[in-house]
């Protein structure tokens, strides 16, 4: 978790470099129409963070089911929420890329459809959490659902786009791709690091917030905190 001030400052500098570098330091990658290759600095890291967040949510859910420690449920729900957010961002940037390359924001391409189904599956996770009133049941049901939901992630992200005909480029960000130069790969890798860092920072904030809520609920609410 990111709690150290220096780490946050380093992350801010890194993010600034990615923001400026993606437009001012890099050239357009060959094989991409117009300036569309610059979307890769945002779209791919956001998709990566979404998959990582859903994986972490599944891991925390397993630990919760094993230990029945509320802190792991907090981490699982925080991770799912952030995964959902980054999944929406990846879908938005992906549809911008689709508009530039395929002429339309939405094409019902297998990749687009599978990310939409994934969003609905995780949307149901939040619906389930809000539908159960008993706290223990809520945590238990949502942890089990998180495991089931994650089972679909590899299928929708990695398998469906590969067994169907997709417009989505498959190996453009491979470091061995000769169309990508050093500067492009440098900014891309730093973007991956920066977005991962931002995710862990957000996760730590959300987790601390849920812990505060829990503590506050246990306290006498008549205490004046102002």
């Amino acid at each position: 978790m990111i709690r150290h001030k220096t780490l946050k400052i380093v992350l801010t500098i890194l993010m600034s470099f990615v923001l400026f570098g993606s437009f001012l330091y890099t050239r357009n990658a060959a094989g991409f129409p117009g300036e569309s290759s610059r979307i890769m600095f945002f779209h791919v890291p956001q998709a990566w963070v979404a998959v990582m967040a859903f994986s972490l949510s599944m891991v925390f859910s397993v630990i919760y089911l094993k230990k029945r420690d509320v802190r792991y449920d907090m981490l699982a729900v925080s991770s799912s929420e952030l995964g959902f957010l980054f999944c929406i961002l990846a879908m938005l940037t992906g549809s911008m890329f689709a508009r530039l390359t395929w002429g339309s924001f939405w094409n019902w391409d297998p990749r687009e459809t599978s990310i939409l189904i994934l969003l609905m599956i995780y949307g149901a996770y939040f619906a389930l959490r809000s539908a159960v009133n008993d706290q223990d049941d809520k945590r238990k049901f949502s942890a089990v659902y998180s495991l089931l939901a994650f089972a679909t992630v590899p299928f929708f992200i990695f398998i469906v786009p590969r067994i169907t005909i997709s417009l989505h480029p498959s190996d453009t960000m491979n470091p061995m791709n000769p169309q990508l130069d050093f500067r492009f790969m440098l900014v891309f890798i730093l973007a991956l690091v920066a977005f991962t860092g931002i995710f862990f920072w957000m996760l730590s904030l959300k987790y601390r917030w849920l812990q505060l809520e829990e503590k506050f609920n246990r306290m006498d609410t008549s205490w004046d905190l102002d």
Binding site: L19, W201, L225
Partner: peptide, 27 residues
């Protein structure tokens, strides 16, 4: 637009971080 959005997000994270820290200390 990209610079404005991401600068806003990072500044907001710093702001929330400080607020949560304050609240943690108060509690």
């Amino acid at each position: 637009v990209n610079i404005v959005i991401w600068t806003g997000i990072v500044l907001y994270l710093f702001h929330i971080d400080r607020k949560i820290g304050k609240l943690e200390r108060k509690i």
